[in-house]
Simulated assay, not measured.
Amino acid sequence: MSEEADLVARLKNPKTQNQAFGELVMQYQERLYWHIRRIVLTHQNADDVLQETFIKIFRNIDGFKEESKLYSWMYRIATNEALSFLKRNSKIQGISGDELQNNQIVNLKADPYFDGDQAALELQKALLELPEKQRLVFNMKYFQELKYDEISAILETSVGALKASYHLAVKKIEKHLKHEGLET
C-alpha cells in the first residue's frame, strides 16, 4: 500500500481520521495556501478559503474515489473554493468581475503580507487581466511548477488545451509587462 493510499484509508477510518487529518493538513497546508493565494491574492482571503477547503476535504473524504491522486482532488476543491469565494465577493459587493479585479490589486498593495516590488505587482495585474482558465493554468505551471498531466487531473481538461492556455497566458503577460516598460 502506498503512503497516499495508507493516508486515505486512515482518513476514511473514524478511529484514525483525526490524526490522519492532522497529518494531511501539515503535509498540504502550505502548498494549498499558495495555490489559493495566487487566486484570491490577499493573505486574509487565502487563509479563509484555505480553512473552508480543509473543512470541505474533511467532510467529503468518504466521497474520494481514489480515481485521481489525493492532492489533485484537494487542489480541485481548493480551486473551486477560491473561485466561488471571488464570485460571492463580487455579488456581495454588487460589482462586476473587472471591478473586483481592480479592487484586488488595491487590496494587494495594502496587504502587509505582500512583499513584492513593482515588477511583482505588475505581474499580478497582468495575471488579473487573463481569463480565469489561463490564469489558473499559468499559476499552476509557473509558480507551482506542476506538470501538465497534474494540472489536467486538477482542472479536468486535456493537456493540449492546457498547453494552449499557458502559451496564450505567457504571450499576454509579456505584452502587458512590455507595455508597462518592464522586461520579461
Rank of each mutant, 00 (worst) to 15 (best):
V8C: 09
L11Q: 00
K12P: 08
N13V: 09
N13P: 05
K15Q: 15
T16E: 13
Q17S: 14
Q17M: 06
N18Q: 11
V25W: 04
V25L: 09
V25A: 06
Y28F: 13
E30H: 14
W34G: 04
I36G: 05
I36T: 10
R38Y: 14
I39C: 05
V40S: 00
H43R: 08
Q44Y: 08
D47S: 12
T53L: 11
R59H: 10
N60L: 00
G63S: 13
G63Q: 09
F64D: 01
E67S: 09
S68N: 06
S68G: 01
L70G: 08
L70Q: 07
Y71M: 12
S72Q: 10
W73N: 00
M74E: 05
A78D: 04
T79P: 10
A82P: 02
A82S: 08
L83P: 09
L83G: 10
F85L: 01
K87V: 14
S90G: 00
K91Q: 15
S96D: 07
E99G: 05
N103F: 05
V106H: 07
N107Y: 04
N107A: 11
L108P: 04
D111N: 03
P112C: 06
D115S: 13
Q118G: 01
A120I: 03
A126R: 07
L127I: 07
L127M: 12
E129T: 07
E129W: 10
L130Q: 00
L136R: 03
V137Q: 06
F138A: 12
K141V: 05
E145F: 12
Y148G: 01
L155P: 02
E156C: 15
A161S: 14
L162V: 05
L162D: 04
A164I: 13
Y166T: 00
H167N: 13
K171M: 06
K171C: 01
K172P: 03
K172G: 03
I173N: 01
E174R: 14
K175G: 09
K175L: 11
H176I: 04
H176Q: 06
L177I: 09
H179E: 15
